[in-house]
Write a protein that binds this DNA or RNA. Structure first.
Length: 355
DNA sequence: TATTCGTGGCC
DNA sequence: TGGCCAAGAAT
C-alpha cells in the first residue's frame, strides 16, 4: 500500500500520528460514556444501539436496557417483544430482532456467553466488521480497527481522498495500518472522538486538531465529495385506522408494511384509502359522523410519509366484527410501537381529554 | 453494489 | 427551518 501522508519516513509519521491522537484523546476525549466498562455484554449492547445513531440519543435507551437486563443471563430469558419494547423509539428495529436472534444462538452454541474471538463474533446477526472490532477491542480481547462514519471522514480528509464507498477498502487498510497494537482500545475511541468532536462534517475545527500538520486536505483544500450516492427520498401516503373502544382500549396489530417497523404493533395500516375501505367493510364498520380525520407528516431517512389518520370510536352495541384479542390498554402494553403510533396516540389524547 | 432499514440532533 | 447526517449491517 502506498502511503499518502506527507513525510520523508512513512513509519515515523505513523507513530507520530498515533501518539498525537492518543495524547489528544487522553486530554480531550469522551472518557465518561456509560458503556466505558469492562463488560463485553454491555459493550455489545451499546455498539448495536450506536449503529447509525447518535450518542446522545442512545444514552437513555442504553441505561433503561441495562437496568432491565444487567447481565447476559438476564437478557437470555427475555422475549422478543420485551426487547422490542425497550427499543421502541430508537429506530432500526432489525437491531433489536438481531439481539434476540443472537441470544438464541448464544444459548445453543456458545454456552450462553458472547464469543471473544473475531471469527465467531462476526457470524452473529447484526455484527459486522466495525461492530465486531469495537466489541473485541473495547473489551480487551484483541486489537482490531474500525471504519465507522467518524473514521471514514477523518481518514479520507487526512489522506484527501473521496469519502465514498469505492474507497472503503483503502480506508479500511489505512485504518488498520494506523492502529497501534498496544492502547488499541484508547486509539479506536480516539479515532471516533476526533471525528465527532474535531473533524466534524461541517466546519471542522482544524485549529485545534492534533494532526493538522499531516492533513493533506488542510494543505491542499477539502474535497466536496459527499453529494454522490444519495438515495432520493420517496414520498408516500399511508392510511391508519385508529379504533378505540368504550373502555379506552386501542385496536392494535402487528405491523405489516413491507418489513418496515417489523415486530412492532400499531393501529391498522393501509397503503391507500381503497385498502382501508375494504378492511372496514369486511369488519362491518361504517364511517359516519363519529369519526375524525387527522393528517401529519412523518419523515424517515428515505421516505416522507404523509399520514392520513381516521379516529373512530367503537360503540359496544354495534355489529362490528373485530377480534377481541387485539384490544389493549395503553398503560400495560407488552410490545413496542413505532414513533408515528405515539404521535397518533398523543393526538388522540389531546382531542379526547384522555387520561 | 445499491437499497433498505427510524428517529432525532444539529445548524 | 429544512436538510444533512449519525459508533452500519444485511441483502
Amino acid at each position: 500500500m502506498s502511503l499518502k501522508i506527507k513525510s520523508n519516513s512513512h513509519f515515523d509519521t505513523i507513530s507520530v500520528i498515533q501518539e498525537a491522537l492518543l495524547k489528544w484523546y487522553s486530554n480531550n476525549g469522551r472518557h465518561n460514556l456509560p458503556w466505558k466498562v469492562n463488560d463485553i455484554y454491555k459493550i455489545w449492547i451499546s455498539e448495536i444501539m450506536l449503529q447509525q445513531t447518535q450518542v446522545k440519543s442512545v444514552i437513555p435507551y442504553y441505561q433503561k436496557f441495562i437496568q432491565k437486563y444487567p447481565t447476559i443471563s438476564d437478557l437470555l430469558k427475555a422475549k422478543k417483544n420485551d426487547i422490542l419494547k425497550l427499543w421502541s423509539g430508537l429506530g432500526f428495529y432489525r437491531r433489536a430482532e438481531n439481539i434476540f436472534k443472537t441470544c438464541e444462538i448464544l444459548k445453543k452454541k456458545h454456552n450462553g456467553k458472547l464469543p471473544v474471538n473475531y471469527d465467531d463474533l462476526i457470524l452473529l446477526p447484526g455484527i459486522g466488521k466495525t461492530t465486531a472490532s469495537a466489541i473485541l477491542t473495547f473489551s480487551g480481547n484483541g486489537a482490531y480497527s474500525i471504519l465507522d462514519a467518524n473514521v471514514k471522514r477523518f481518514l479520507s480528509r487526512l489522506l484527501r481522498i473521496e469519502n465514498t464507498t469505492k474507497n472503503n477498502k483503502y480506508l479500511w487498510d489505512y485504518s488498520t495500518l494506523l492502529l497501534p497494537n498496544d492502547k488499541a482500545s484508547e486509539f479506536i475511541q480516539a479515532y471516533m472522538d476526533i471525528g465527532s468532536m474535531i473533524c466534524t462534517p461541517k466546519k471542522p475545527n482544524c485549529g485545534i486538531c492534533p494532526v493538522v500538520k499531516y492533513c493533506i486536505s488542510h494543505t491542499k483544500g477539502f474535497l466536496n465529495s459527499n453529494e454522490i450516492n444519495k438515495p432520493k427520498i420517496k414520498e408516500n401516503n399511508i392510511w391508519v385506522m385508529v379504533l378505540v373502544n368504550s373502555k379506552n382500549q386501542f385496536f392494535l396489530e402487528s405491523v405489516n408494511y413491507n418489513g418496515l417497523w417489523r415486530g412492532l404493533y400499531s393501529s391498522p395500516l393501509f397503503k391507500n384509502y381503497g385498502e382501508l375501505s375494504d378492511w372496514i367493510k369486511i369488519h362491518n364498520i361504517e364511517l359516519n359522523k363519529e369519526h375524525t380525520i387527522w393528517k401529519f407528516v412523518h419523515h424517515l431517512s428515505h421516505i416522507k410519509f404523509s399520514f392520513n389518520v381516521i379516529f373512530y370510536k367503537v360503540k359496544s352495541n354495534k355489529k362490528i366484527s373485530l377480534s377481541p384479542d387485539n384490544w389493549y390498554n395503553l398503560s400495560n402494553i407488552e410490545f413496542g410501537m413505532p414513533k408515528y403510533q405515539n404521535k397518533i396516540i398523543d393526538k388522540y389524547k389531546s382531542i379526547n381529554d384522555y387520561n
